[in-house]
């Protein structure tokens, strides 16, 4: 089959625009379903504290607070733990240990959120109820579970950032007599800062967007949590709890909740993108980006195609 290159290029461009198109249509559909309600009831109703959708009260403020609270809690746990793991993996662990630890983190990343939620129900909730009091289902429980769930994201992206720091930085520092830890703290971490910031931001996005595990452990009460032991409801939990059941304005209000969630996550992604862009281009590109654009003299001399 001989396809003209132009045709191929056009077709591939269409495919390449698919993710943008999907993103746009997600935005279109949830805005179409949710925005009219926000417009009709007004921002003062929508961002009030009173959620009673069957009575026309659509205030999501406490859920925003809830999402914020569990996310902060999750970061407090997940960020130090995650970055520490990344440092161990990237800077300290001997190759043999790395070969075991890295796939272990991959497995952690693959465990489904319902399993995390279930672990929350059978391990975390009873522990909190017995040792700290309250009903167990609480912001604290959600934060603990989320903190663990965002670990793989934070580890993977921080590790990328650490690995992108050129070896010569470390060599220089070590050669001047600095210890390994001094090198990590004073040289490697600062050099990898923007990538680590991106890791934290993307971890935040993951925590804000996680649903099933949170529904299972957060208690889902629409109230202002006064202590970590109080139950609370997040934006995502609101959607999962009430979506199937809602109709009319109630359903529209849930889509409106979805709009808020979508905007939060988009801005987090945008921020992460900005943070990461600073360290582009990568220090050592493996391969020139475009065949067409690079003069032949800059390319690696050709060798016979022998693929084992």
């Amino acid at each position: 089959m001989r396809l003209p290159d132009k045709v191929v290029e056009r077709a591939l461009l269409l495919l390449a625009l698919s993710s943008v198109a999907v993103l746009a249509s997600i935005a279109f559909f949830i805005v179409r379903e949710g925005a009219p309600l926000i417009y009709r009831v007004g921002l003062s109703n929508f961002f009030s504290t009173d959620w009673h959708p069957t009575a026309g009260r659509f205030g999501i403020l406490f859920m925003l607070v809830g999402s914020l609270a569990v996310t902060v809690g999750a970061l407090a746990l997940g960020v130090p733990l995650g970055i520490s793991c990344a440092i161990v993996l990237g800077e300290m662990a001997p190759p043999r240990a790395r070969r075991i630890l890295k796939p272990a983190i991959e497995i952690l990343a693959g465990i489904p959120s319902v399993v995390y939620g279930f672990m929350g129900i059978v391990v975390v909730l009873p522990w909190i109820r017995e040792h700290l009091g309250g009903p167990g289902a609480s912001g604290l429980a959600a934060a603990v579970i989320l903190g663990i769930m965002i670990l793989p994201t934070i580890i993977a992206i921080s590790l990328d950032a650490l690995e992108a720091v050129p070896m010569s930085y470390r060599d220089g520092s070590l050669a001047m007599g600095a210890t390994e830890w001094q090198t990590v703290r004073r040289v490697v971490l600062p050099a990898a800062r923007s990538g680590i910031v991106a890791a934290v931001i993307l971890g935040t996005g993951r925590a804000v967007g996680e649903t099933m595990a949170v529904v299972m452990v957060a208690g889902n009460a629409v109230q202002l949590p006064h202590s970590p032991l109080d139950p609370l409801r997040t934006l995502t939990a609101n959607l999962a709890l009430e979506m199937g059941y809602a109709t009319g304005d109630h359903r529209a209000a849930l889509f409106a909740t979805g709009i808020v969630l979508f905007l939060i996550v988009l801005s987090l992604n945008g921020a992460a993108g900005l943070a990461r862009r600073r360290r582009r281009p990568r220090p050592r590109p493996r391969r020139t980006a475009s065949v067409a654009g690079v003069p032949a003299s800059e390319r690696i001399p050709p060798s016979p195609v022998s693929d084992p």
């Binding site: 909730l125 009903p135 889902n220 629409v222 139950p231 999962a240």
Partner: peptide
């Protein structure tokens, strides 16, 4: 508003079964 919310009969039952004060 402080009431815990669960989205199915089974989930309510499960929670009551596991919490002595529920």
């Amino acid at each position: 508003a402080s009431a815990l919310v669960q989205d199915s009969t089974g989930a309510v039952r499960q929670m009551v079964a596991s919490d002595p004060a529920a």
